[in-house]
Design a protein around this nucleic acid. Sequence first.
DNA 1: TAATTTTGTTTAATCGATTAAACAATTCAA
DNA 2: TTGAATTGTTTAATCGATTAAACAAAATTA
Lengths: 340, 340
Amino acid sequence: MKKKVCQKDIAQKVGVSTALVSYVLNNLKEGRISKAVAQKIRDTAKELNYRTNQIAKSLKTNKTFTIGLIVADISNPFFSSLARIIEDEADKKNYTVIFGSSDENAQKSWKLINTLVDRQVDGFIIAPAENTESNLTYLKDHGIPFVLIDRYFPRIECNQVVIDNYKAAYTAVQHMIDGGNKRIGMVTFNSTLYNMNERKRGYLGALKENNIAFEKDWCKEIFFGDTKTNVEKAIHDLLSLSQPVDSLLFASNILATYGLKYIQATVTRVPGDLAIVSFDQMDSSDLFYAPLTYLKQPIQEMGEMATKMLLQHIEEEKDVEQVNLEATLVIRDSTLKLVY
Amino acid sequence: MKKKVCQKDIAQKVGVSTALVSYVLNNLKEGRISKAVAQKIRDTAKELNYRTNQIAKSLKTNKTFTIGLIVADISNPFFSSLARIIEDEADKKNYTVIFGSSDENAQKSWKLINTLVDRQVDGFIIAPAENTESNLTYLKDHGIPFVLIDRYFPRIECNQVVIDNYKAAYTAVQHMIDGGNKRIGMVTFNSTLYNMNERKRGYLGALKENNIAFEKDWCKEIFFGDTKTNVEKAIHDLLSLSQPVDSLLFASNILATYGLKYIQATVTRVPGDLAIVSFDQMDSSDLFYAPLTYLKQPIQEMGEMATKMLLQHIEEEKDVEQVNLEATLVIRDSTLKLVY
DNA sequence: TAATTTTGTTTAATCGATTAAACAATTCAA
DNA sequence: TTGAATTGTTTAATCGATTAAACAAAATTA
């Protein structure tokens, strides 16, 4: 690693103090510095290929222009899309993104947050895992700005950009019922996450509103872990009931991805044997033989708002902001009403 | 932002110098420090919730335990999968990842590299964009460790983990020819990237070896930009030739994703009218009605090796290392040999 | 018992910036 | 012409750690 050029080097070469170099390179004390010297400093900086050492600058200014992004898994297309949107929005204000995947694990999440706090990130965008309320309380207590995205805890009041999951699920189920379906299944995660529970509550709410008696066997809650196997088993079970479900709501893209692959390999016909709605947009749901009806989250807006909100909170004191967006039901073949 | 606890606070509370605090917290001078004082320092650190300020530490030690990851687009599943693998591997050695998307744009790439160099990252993992040789030369000249992944420039000698793209494409085309196909098309990017050219060269090589005269209209080179429209037009053209192609190789997941959606919407039957092979593993190619034959890149291995290699180069002087891995052809329905 | 070692701790410089305050040299105003 | 204001620049403290070197006190050796 070659020794880097620092302000001192410029100062020595030009024959001035480092203070002057700093002032010039930061365009401070504009009126006070002689044009000739300023130009000479700028020229020399360019000539020596000077680059400011952000670490030193950050130490002094107590600002890193860095934000921490914590999601469950950066390789999940939902989160990597968000990451890209956040990256671009942050870049507009010269912020850089450090990311970490929590794997839905509270301990990992805590470790990540600490690592990033140690690195003095200016704030966080977090899609929190289960049981991480204490992480957020810690951040609040320490006055470290953060914005939740996608998920939140009703009992923790903080900045957040989320969707109305109750309404989204309700709409999806209502749509399936309107399509003539009577036995509606759901595959969701076994989780205490509020957004997941809202999805289930929306599902139950729609059933109830339509006087459909919910049967316990209709709702499968998948444990994090060997998701693939568990989803396959769940679907197998749903279709093996003495009265199998005639329609199915997937509560996330991951569940739907595994589910679709399994369904494609079975004799089940979509939407003939089984109508399907899934949360989240996925390339693969376009390519399934019956393109999937899905709940489209306004991911661009979510990412942009979360980032803008965070940067505002970093740069000025503000009250808590909570934004609720809506998912859109995009209706396609997988819930086509079949007329016999 | 609440004032953070620093070593000085601990020192004052315990009644010792900050030097002692630093020694204790870093487990240095083990034999020399009295057990009682050491314990008291540790206790007080815990009590005050002390966290080390990495920025300050980095400034002094000239080490940030941070690596920069530069890819074309973090929302591309190929790159986000890599990112996840790299994250995990880096975490094992307590490194953290900062990422940036170059958008296949040399200027953005240069800006990104500078931003991350300013932040004193310890090294880079880069999937370089076109015309970024100078960026890499800069890094070499400054002795900043980096490893290329997925793509490289034959004229720049540096650490890299890539696959043999010539061989991969060759294998794919040979497989299509073996399946009885005679008019083989390719959809690739219009790019000077070596890996892309190798794919084309492999394609041409296989044709030649099999005495199939290549026709110019068979190979469509898509400009970065409005990829979707351009892919659709390309496929339309390939299928509208007076003698349409009977098989098609997609040179990347992005191209294949758009391509498959378009093909699904047409009357073209796969593999009957058109056999298909694609580079890269994708969920969507599992769900296409004719599950796609594809070239599987050893992405886990690539990510792990690149990270290990980088960290080794960061931690000790080493000679340039170049790793060539192989893609595997996974044969499925989209290239089924049809017997009439 | 004096000289030497060992033990435990502090001092002070340093990393590369930023920035309030001080200081000289001019210019201006009265 | 003298005091005040302006202009141009430097000094030195600081951010929060690390760490070589210095130092004092206690233990060991001769």
